[in-house]
Design a binder for these strands. Structure first.
Lengths: 214, 214
DNA sequence: TAGATTGTTAATCGATTAACAATC
DNA sequence: TAGATTGTTAATCGATTAACAATC
């Protein structure tokens, strides 16, 4: 059933969710696939098709009820309930994520930072006072705090070994990898957030266009 | 000529570049498309095809010379010369990026942060003492410092207006958007780095698998 | 030369889009 | 009812993969 869903659909669903929230905040109650498509630079038929994988959320003649669509998308994306998140690496990126309110808004609760640097142990971060915990205690804390998502925010050379240790924690169901390196996982889901690749993809575009003009 | 290159190729080229550097550091001199494919979980034919868009970098019978491949990829990706980068928004994400050494390693030099908060003006960030400058002076500073890449690291509601102002700066060739919102640009290239969407895509995967098991 | 691996073509696969009947 | 918009099928498009001749 789920095996037939094209890979790019999940990210577009998240895009729809974001847009639906904006539309709701502006006081709207209905949206057509056409308007959604214009706002997101997507074809309306693609939006209807994406949504139809999960059932019919719309009403012929009028469009999609925004409240119902929002709730449906949250069910599909799994954010109708909170997820406990642990960040490994209390460096620049780890700290920025811990303080990032957008996550909490989407029901992702960062409740622990793990670091190997003993000078950071025992301190806490941000207004929510997220504790920094020694990496040695990572697995037991993940168990104790029911952390299901691990975020890798350590330098590239440590990323795989951290991933291995996260996979040993039975509670961990998914990993988000910010380290600029490919990591290999088993029995957990993985998403990469690739900052350096985005920069390179950008200069590739700039560069190839400037060559075309010559 | 460049119009025939599939969209996903650019990101894979950046992936190859990262892997080639790792291989070089390990002391290797040659790599086959097969080995590269295994390391990146890609088919060898895809790697050969991707590279062949830009010319023949390999040698039949032996594979690709790593040094030559690295240089070729850097030429293609446009990182054979430095790019000056300005970050708009000196919040958590902007600061983390300013301190992120990975960028400098790839020839991206963050040389200015722009913020509207006057209490931050005049201060500087990190070991490279990157100055924080009022947003009002953004356009003139971009001109003065020859900044070609603008990074949007402000809250979603300000992202589009910052993008508009960046587009008014003649020097700006590309924008990297970290704000969780779709922005519209004209005459500049755009890449999105989407943290919240990655989290949602991850829980979508976790969630849909757990439903499948029921 | 024999073995290995590229570069490239052609076949396959999968995702996007157009079109339209269903229906609000 | 007439107009609008969905849900879905079929057609199109584009990217990936397999296969193999070229060649180091």
């Amino acid at each position: 059933m789920n095996s037939k869903i094209p890979a790019p659909v999940a990210k577009r669903l998240a895009l729809y969710h974001r847009c639906v929230i904006t539309l709701l905040e502006s006081g709207k109650e209905l949206v057509s696939s056409n308007e959604l498509g214009e706002r997101l630079s997507l074809k309306s038929s693609q939006i209807r098709k994406d949504l139809s994988y999960f059932g019919g959320f719309g009403k012929r003649g009028s469009g999609y009820n925004l409240n119902y669509l929002k709730e449906s998308l949250e069910n599909i994306l799994g954010i109708n309930r909170p997820w406990n998140v642990g960040i490994v690496g209390a460096g620049n990126i780890g700290m920025a994520l811990a303080n990032y309110e957008g996550l909490l808004r989407d029901n992702y609760r960062v409740i622990a930072l793990f670091d190997r640097n003993l000078s950071k142990w025992g301190t806490s971060v941000g207004s929510r006072r997220i504790p920094i915990i020694p990496i040695k205690e990572m697995c037991s804390k993940i168990e104790e705090l029911s952390i299901e998502i691990g975020v890798i925010a350590v330098p590239a050379e440590y990323a795989q070994s951290i991933a291995n240790r996260l996979m040993e924690c039975k509670k961990i169901k998914g990993i988000i990898n910010f380290a600029p390196v490919k990591i290999y996982v088993k029995n957990v889901d993985l998403e990469d957030v690739d900052i350096s690749i985005s920069f390179k993809a950008l200069t590739f575009k700039i560069w190839s266009e400037s060559l075309g003009k010559e």
